[in-house]
Design a protein around this nucleic acid. Structure first.
Length: 320
DNA sequence: TCCAAATGTAAAA
DNA sequence: TTTACCTTTGGAT
């Protein structure tokens, strides 16, 4: 899934595109028909992210909680006068070049045609669980692992299970540092535990540990507290940058040497949208999906192994 | 046309 | 620790 930075980006996008007027909420696919009926016609009054959870607040104290899971995605289309148009946020789907293609959709949703001030609303593509339609934009959700209407109390309960989120201003770094140091579970596994730190995924895990020079397999309690704190501080910088940029980039400019295609096409295919000036995906990471390639720092081959069902990447020389 | 992979998590065993 | 689930995509067949 998109990691926490993507979800924060989504929260901002919903606030700017949909806050205000009553929304039409539907479930083209049908699997969220009941929830959509409950929300239809209500105004969006809040848009929040905590880790990988997105909470859209509707009048009447109801919240739409969505989680993109491994391959969920939101796809947006906007009217020409929309304040901001983001055509696709999520993963894994390649959207290179679509920035220009969805402005004038070739297929128009007949049920909404003529009711949106002349703006042509595209028909849902694929298995769209939820569609939010506002005055200036439409958002379609596909493939989520969670999509439900909850109360404020239920939202609080979900948040109570999450660790601090480095992107949020209210995050408490001390909680993270203390928890990591209390457990013998490896630092690599703890970083993927949303109860320890919310929003970190497989890429930020691998990259933050490389930048800190910490072996992912070291027990959390054996990592010096100052090093754990440094990892937190780095995550704050990296993840906030990711939310602003719309892509994960962890390499410093001086380390950005292309791999000459050695990684092969498609290794890191969904990180960037092809925006001019963006850091190419084969220069964006130190170790993620670079197993077998030389470490950007020391030249030793990057290592990989499966840990708790996820691929772990690291440099055995730089990370001790 | 088929199949594996993907920035994930919860439940079952 | 294994399985199930949700969906799209690109490369192989």
């Amino acid at each position: 899934m998109p990691e926490g930075h993507t979800v924060h980006r989504l929260a901002r996008t919903f606030a700017s595109l949909f806050a205000g007027p009553a929304l039409r909420v539907s479930s083209p696919q049908g699997r969220f028909a009941d929830g959509a009926a409950v929300l239809d016609g209500r105004r969006l009054v809040a848009s929040q992210a905590w880790g990988k959870q997105l909470f859209l607040g509707f009048e009447g104290d109801l919240w739409l909680r969505t989680h993109l899971g491994l391959y969920g995605a939101w796809t947006f289309a906007g009217a020409p006068d929309a304040p901001e148009v983001v055509h696709a946020i999520g993963a894994p789907r390649k959207r290179i070049g679509e920035r220009e293609t969805t402005v004038v959709p070739s297929v128009v949703d007949p049920t909404t045609e003529g009711s949106t001030g002349g703006w042509l609303v595209p028909s849902p593509r694929g298995q769209v669980r939820v569609r939010l339609l506002g005055d200036h934009a439409v958002a379609d959700l596909t493939g989520p692992t969670a999509c439900e209407v909850i109360t404020a109390e239920e939202k609080t309960a979900v948040e109570a299970r999450l660790g601090p989120d480095p992107i949020r201003d209210d995050a408490d770094a001390d909680v993270f540092v203390a928890r990591v140091g209390r457990s013998r579970v490896t630092i690599g596994q703890q970083l993927m535990d949303q109860a320890v730190v919310a929003g970190v995924g497989n890429i930020y895990r691998a990259e933050a540990l490389f930048r800190a020079g910490v072996d992912p397999l070291r027990p959390g309690r054996d990592v010096p507290a100052v090093a754990v704190r440094a990892i937190w501080d780095d995550l704050v910088v990296l993840m906030r940058d990711g939310a602003d940029r719309g892509a994960i980039v962890t390499t410093r400019p001086e380390d950005r040497v292309p791999d000459g295609g050695a990684a092969g096409p498609g290794r890191t295919r969904q990180n960037t949208d092809g925006t001019p000036g963006a850091v190419p995906s084969d220069e964006a990471f130190y170790v993620y999906h670079r197993d077998g390639l030389p470490c950007r720092r020391c030249g030793a081959p990057v290592l990989a192994k499966e840990l708790a069902g996820r691929n772990l990447f690291w440099c055995g020389v730089c990370q001790v």
